[in-house]
Computed example of a mutant assay.
Amino acid sequence: MIYPLLWMLSSSLKDNTDIFINAHQLIPSKWNFDNYVTGFKGFAGISFAVFFKNSFIITILSVIGTVISSTMVAYGFARIRFKWAPFWFSCMMLTMMLPGEVLMIPQYIFFHKIGWINTFLPLIVPSFFGGAFFIFLIIQFLRGIPKELDESAHIDGCGKYRTFILIMIPLLVPPIITVSIFKFYWTWDDFFSPLLYLNSPKLATVSLAIKSFADPTMKTDWGAMFAMSILSLVPIFIIFFVFQKYIVEGISTTGLKG
Protein backbone atom coordinates (compact mmCIF):
# COMPACT_ATOMS: atom_id res chain seq x y z
CA MET A 1 0.00 0.00 0.00
CA ILE A 2 2.87 2.38 0.82
CA TYR A 3 5.06 1.34 -2.11
CA PRO A 4 3.37 3.61 -4.74
CA LEU A 5 3.96 6.62 -2.48
CA LEU A 6 7.59 5.63 -1.95
CA TRP A 7 8.01 5.12 -5.70
CA MET A 8 6.52 8.56 -6.43
CA LEU A 9 8.79 10.17 -3.81
CA SER A 10 11.78 8.41 -5.34
CA SER A 11 10.76 9.42 -8.88
CA SER A 12 10.44 13.05 -7.81
CA LEU A 13 14.18 12.98 -7.07
CA LYS A 14 15.26 11.36 -10.36
CA ASP A 15 15.97 12.63 -13.84
CA ASN A 16 13.26 11.99 -16.43
CA THR A 17 15.28 9.26 -18.13
CA ASP A 18 16.20 7.63 -14.83
CA ILE A 19 12.54 7.42 -13.77
CA PHE A 20 11.74 4.75 -16.37
CA ILE A 21 15.14 3.14 -16.91
CA ASN A 22 15.58 2.45 -13.19
CA ALA A 23 11.91 2.37 -12.25
CA HIS A 24 12.51 -0.64 -9.99
CA GLN A 25 15.03 1.23 -7.83
CA LEU A 26 13.67 3.33 -5.00
CA ILE A 27 17.03 4.95 -4.32
CA PRO A 28 17.91 7.36 -7.15
CA SER A 29 21.26 6.83 -8.83
CA LYS A 30 21.57 10.62 -9.00
CA TRP A 31 19.63 12.88 -6.64
CA ASN A 32 17.87 15.67 -8.51
CA PHE A 33 16.23 18.27 -6.25
CA ASP A 34 15.76 20.63 -9.18
CA ASN A 35 12.47 18.89 -9.94
CA TYR A 36 10.90 20.67 -6.97
CA VAL A 37 12.28 24.04 -8.08
CA THR A 38 11.15 23.51 -11.67
CA GLY A 39 7.75 22.18 -10.65
CA PHE A 40 7.06 25.01 -8.22
CA LYS A 41 7.63 27.54 -11.00
CA GLY A 42 4.43 26.19 -12.54
CA PHE A 43 3.50 27.01 -16.10
CA ALA A 44 2.20 29.94 -18.20
CA GLY A 45 4.01 32.30 -15.82
CA ILE A 46 1.90 31.10 -12.86
CA SER A 47 3.72 29.51 -9.92
CA PHE A 48 2.40 26.59 -7.94
CA ALA A 49 1.83 28.90 -4.98
CA VAL A 50 -1.18 30.30 -6.87
CA PHE A 51 -2.58 26.82 -7.42
CA PHE A 52 -2.13 25.92 -3.76
CA LYS A 53 -3.85 29.17 -2.78
CA ASN A 54 -6.81 28.39 -5.06
CA SER A 55 -7.14 24.87 -3.66
CA PHE A 56 -7.01 26.11 -0.08
CA ILE A 57 -9.65 28.80 -0.75
CA ILE A 58 -12.05 26.30 -2.33
CA THR A 59 -11.37 23.56 0.21
CA ILE A 60 -11.56 25.65 3.39
CA LEU A 61 -14.72 27.50 2.37
CA SER A 62 -16.34 24.21 1.29
CA VAL A 63 -15.48 22.65 4.64
CA ILE A 64 -16.94 25.61 6.53
CA GLY A 65 -20.13 25.55 4.46
CA THR A 66 -20.56 21.79 4.84
CA VAL A 67 -20.03 21.84 8.60
CA ILE A 68 -22.45 24.72 9.21
CA SER A 69 -25.25 23.49 6.95
CA SER A 70 -24.98 19.77 7.72
CA THR A 71 -24.88 20.36 11.47
CA MET A 72 -27.96 22.60 11.42
CA VAL A 73 -29.97 20.24 9.21
CA ALA A 74 -28.95 17.22 11.30
CA TYR A 75 -30.04 18.97 14.49
CA GLY A 76 -33.40 19.79 12.92
CA PHE A 77 -34.03 16.19 11.90
CA ALA A 78 -32.80 14.69 15.17
CA ARG A 79 -34.25 17.09 17.73
CA ILE A 80 -37.09 19.17 16.24
CA ARG A 81 -40.53 17.80 15.44
CA PHE A 82 -42.03 19.25 12.29
CA LYS A 83 -44.59 18.25 9.70
CA TRP A 84 -43.61 15.55 7.21
CA ALA A 85 -40.19 15.08 8.83
CA PRO A 86 -39.91 11.39 7.77
CA PHE A 87 -40.78 12.34 4.19
CA TRP A 88 -38.12 15.05 3.97
CA PHE A 89 -35.59 12.78 5.65
CA SER A 90 -36.30 10.10 3.03
CA CYS A 91 -35.90 12.65 0.25
CA MET A 92 -32.56 13.68 1.68
CA MET A 93 -31.35 10.07 1.89
CA LEU A 94 -32.50 9.39 -1.67
CA THR A 95 -30.11 12.05 -2.93
CA MET A 96 -27.26 9.73 -1.92
CA MET A 97 -28.44 7.31 -4.62
CA LEU A 98 -28.23 9.86 -7.43
CA PRO A 99 -25.09 9.36 -9.54
CA GLY A 100 -23.04 12.47 -10.12
CA GLU A 101 -23.44 12.01 -13.87
CA VAL A 102 -27.18 12.64 -13.54
CA LEU A 103 -26.62 16.03 -11.91
CA MET A 104 -23.66 17.12 -14.01
CA ILE A 105 -25.44 18.61 -17.04
CA PRO A 106 -28.37 20.30 -15.20
CA GLN A 107 -25.96 21.86 -12.70
CA TYR A 108 -23.66 23.11 -15.43
CA ILE A 109 -26.56 24.66 -17.35
CA PHE A 110 -27.85 26.32 -14.17
CA PHE A 111 -24.46 27.74 -13.19
CA HIS A 112 -23.86 28.89 -16.76
CA LYS A 113 -27.16 30.80 -16.87
CA ILE A 114 -26.39 32.67 -13.66
CA GLY A 115 -22.85 33.47 -14.82
CA TRP A 116 -20.87 31.40 -12.35
CA ILE A 117 -18.70 29.51 -14.86
CA ASN A 118 -14.97 30.20 -14.49
CA THR A 119 -15.42 31.23 -10.87
CA PHE A 120 -15.02 29.40 -7.55
CA LEU A 121 -18.73 29.76 -6.76
CA PRO A 122 -19.95 26.43 -8.30
CA LEU A 123 -17.32 24.63 -6.23
CA ILE A 124 -18.09 26.40 -2.94
CA VAL A 125 -21.74 27.50 -2.74
CA PRO A 126 -23.33 23.99 -3.00
CA SER A 127 -21.45 23.04 0.17
CA PHE A 128 -23.57 25.56 2.11
CA PHE A 129 -26.65 23.43 1.41
CA GLY A 130 -25.46 20.35 3.27
CA GLY A 131 -24.52 16.86 2.21
CA ALA A 132 -26.72 13.81 2.80
CA PHE A 133 -23.85 11.59 3.98
CA PHE A 134 -22.59 14.16 6.48
CA ILE A 135 -26.09 15.00 7.72
CA PHE A 136 -26.82 11.32 8.32
CA LEU A 137 -23.49 10.90 10.15
CA ILE A 138 -24.26 13.76 12.54
CA ILE A 139 -27.86 12.61 13.04
CA GLN A 140 -26.65 9.22 14.19
CA PHE A 141 -24.33 10.90 16.67
CA LEU A 142 -27.12 13.17 17.94
CA ARG A 143 -29.36 10.18 18.57
CA GLY A 144 -26.80 8.96 21.08
CA ILE A 145 -27.05 12.18 23.11
CA PRO A 146 -29.74 12.03 25.84
CA LYS A 147 -32.72 14.27 25.17
CA GLU A 148 -32.74 15.20 28.85
CA LEU A 149 -30.04 17.73 28.00
CA ASP A 150 -32.48 19.54 25.71
CA GLU A 151 -35.15 19.47 28.39
CA SER A 152 -32.76 20.86 31.02
CA ALA A 153 -31.70 23.64 28.66
CA HIS A 154 -35.36 24.43 27.96
CA ILE A 155 -36.09 24.65 31.69
CA ASP A 156 -33.17 27.06 32.06
CA GLY A 157 -34.73 29.30 29.42
CA CYS A 158 -32.83 28.25 26.32
CA GLY A 159 -34.69 28.14 23.05
CA LYS A 160 -33.87 25.84 20.15
CA TYR A 161 -31.12 28.09 18.79
CA ARG A 162 -29.35 28.59 22.12
CA THR A 163 -29.65 24.89 22.88
CA PHE A 164 -28.09 24.09 19.53
CA ILE A 165 -25.23 26.58 19.91
CA LEU A 166 -24.48 26.27 23.64
CA ILE A 167 -25.31 22.61 24.31
CA MET A 168 -25.11 20.61 21.10
CA ILE A 169 -22.20 22.20 19.26
CA PRO A 170 -19.65 21.42 22.05
CA LEU A 171 -20.89 17.81 22.14
CA LEU A 172 -20.68 17.48 18.36
CA VAL A 173 -16.96 18.22 18.13
CA PRO A 174 -15.94 14.62 17.17
CA PRO A 175 -18.41 14.25 14.25
CA ILE A 176 -17.79 17.85 13.14
CA ILE A 177 -14.06 17.18 12.90
CA THR A 178 -14.77 13.90 11.10
CA VAL A 179 -16.97 15.70 8.59
CA SER A 180 -14.33 18.40 8.14
CA ILE A 181 -11.59 15.87 7.44
CA PHE A 182 -13.60 13.87 4.92
CA LYS A 183 -14.78 17.03 3.15
CA PHE A 184 -11.23 18.35 3.09
CA TYR A 185 -9.96 15.12 1.52
CA TRP A 186 -12.68 14.92 -1.11
CA THR A 187 -12.52 18.59 -2.11
CA TRP A 188 -8.74 18.79 -2.16
CA ASP A 189 -8.48 15.68 -4.37
CA ASP A 190 -11.37 16.65 -6.65
CA PHE A 191 -10.28 16.88 -10.28
CA PHE A 192 -13.42 16.71 -12.37
CA SER A 193 -15.39 19.60 -10.85
CA PRO A 194 -12.59 22.17 -11.26
CA LEU A 195 -11.99 20.82 -14.76
CA LEU A 196 -15.66 21.37 -15.57
CA TYR A 197 -16.10 24.87 -14.17
CA LEU A 198 -12.66 26.54 -14.25
CA ASN A 199 -11.26 27.67 -17.60
CA SER A 200 -8.62 30.21 -16.60
CA PRO A 201 -5.13 28.93 -15.64
CA LYS A 202 -5.02 31.52 -12.84
CA LEU A 203 -8.01 29.80 -11.19
CA ALA A 204 -6.68 26.24 -11.54
CA THR A 205 -6.43 24.01 -8.49
CA VAL A 206 -3.51 21.79 -7.59
CA SER A 207 -5.10 18.72 -9.20
CA LEU A 208 -5.61 20.57 -12.49
CA ALA A 209 -2.10 22.03 -12.41
CA ILE A 210 -0.49 18.63 -11.89
CA LYS A 211 -2.42 17.25 -14.85
CA SER A 212 -1.10 20.12 -16.97
CA PHE A 213 2.44 18.77 -16.60
CA ALA A 214 1.39 15.69 -18.63
CA ASP A 215 0.99 17.24 -22.07
CA PRO A 216 0.69 14.69 -24.90
CA THR A 217 1.73 17.30 -27.50
CA MET A 218 4.98 18.14 -25.71
CA LYS A 219 7.65 16.45 -23.63
CA THR A 220 6.24 15.66 -20.20
CA ASP A 221 8.37 16.73 -17.25
CA TRP A 222 7.71 13.65 -15.14
CA GLY A 223 10.13 14.60 -12.37
CA ALA A 224 8.46 17.98 -11.80
CA MET A 225 5.01 16.39 -11.95
CA PHE A 226 5.91 13.79 -9.31
CA ALA A 227 7.55 16.50 -7.17
CA MET A 228 4.37 18.59 -7.16
CA SER A 229 2.30 15.46 -6.52
CA ILE A 230 4.35 14.87 -3.38
CA LEU A 231 3.80 18.46 -2.24
CA SER A 232 0.06 18.13 -2.91
CA LEU A 233 -0.06 15.23 -0.43
CA VAL A 234 1.54 17.21 2.39
CA PRO A 235 -1.69 18.94 3.59
CA ILE A 236 -3.54 15.62 3.52
CA PHE A 237 -0.89 13.87 5.60
CA ILE A 238 -0.78 16.74 8.09
CA ILE A 239 -4.56 16.73 8.50
CA PHE A 240 -4.63 12.95 8.92
CA PHE A 241 -1.83 12.66 11.51
CA VAL A 242 -3.06 15.64 13.54
CA PHE A 243 -6.74 14.64 13.63
CA GLN A 244 -6.70 10.86 13.16
CA LYS A 245 -7.97 10.23 16.72
CA TYR A 246 -11.04 12.35 15.96
CA ILE A 247 -11.76 10.32 12.81
CA VAL A 248 -11.90 7.12 14.84
CA GLU A 249 -13.86 8.74 17.68
CA GLY A 250 -16.35 10.44 15.36
CA ILE A 251 -17.13 7.24 13.45
CA SER A 252 -16.94 4.70 16.28
CA THR A 253 -19.33 6.65 18.53
CA THR A 254 -21.85 7.25 15.77
CA GLY A 255 -25.08 5.45 16.52
CA LEU A 256 -24.25 4.54 20.12
CA LYS A 257 -26.96 5.21 22.65
CA GLY A 258 -26.03 7.35 25.64
Results as ranks from 00 to 15, higher is better:
240 F>L: 09
246 Y>D: 02
217 T>D: 10
69 S>W: 00
24 H>R: 15
28 P>I: 06
173 V>D: 07
4 P>F: 07
118 N>V: 06
178 T>E: 04
148 E>Q: 15
203 L>T: 03
147 K>R: 13
131 G>Y: 07
9 L>S: 15
245 K>F: 04
1 M>Q: 14
187 T>H: 02
127 S>G: 09
175 P>W: 10
115 G>W: 09
108 Y>V: 06
97 M>L: 08
62 S>A: 14
186 W>P: 03
133 F>T: 07
162 R>N: 14
256 L>G: 11
231 L>W: 05
178 T>C: 11
190 D>E: 03
11 S>A: 15
36 Y>G: 04
52 F>D: 02
152 S>R: 12
94 L>T: 02
199 N>H: 12
189 D>E: 01
221 D>L: 13
236 I>H: 03
246 Y>W: 08
61 L>G: 02
35 N>W: 06
32 N>W: 06
254 T>K: 10
154 H>I: 12
125 V>K: 05
42 G>H: 02
39 G>Q: 10
195 L>N: 03
9 L>T: 13
144 G>E: 04
46 I>H: 06
155 I>M: 15
162 R>S: 15
12 S>C: 13
91 C>M: 11
48 F>I: 05
57 I>R: 03
94 L>R: 02
138 I>T: 07
170 P>E: 10
179 V>Y: 01
27 I>S: 12
215 D>M: 06
28 P>K: 13
58 I>S: 06
132 A>M: 11
30 K>D: 13
131 G>E: 08
18 D>M: 14
219 K>F: 11
51 F>V: 02
75 Y>N: 07
18 D>P: 12
34 D>I: 09
170 P>M: 12
153 A>Q: 11
15 D>I: 10
205 T>W: 02
15 D>Q: 13
14 K>F: 12
21 I>P: 09
32 N>F: 12
213 F>R: 04
187 T>M: 09
252 S>F: 01
177 I>H: 04
43 F>V: 11
112 H>K: 15
73 V>M: 11
190 D>M: 00
10 S>E: 06
66 T>P: 07
93 M>N: 07
110 F>K: 14
63 V>T: 01
140 Q>F: 07
100 G>I: 02
247 I>R: 00
204 A>D: 08
158 C>W: 06
126 P>N: 06
165 I>A: 15
223 G>Q: 08
217 T>S: 14
82 F>G: 09
130 G>M: 06
33 F>S: 11
36 Y>V: 05
148 E>R: 07
77 F>Q: 03
48 F>T: 01
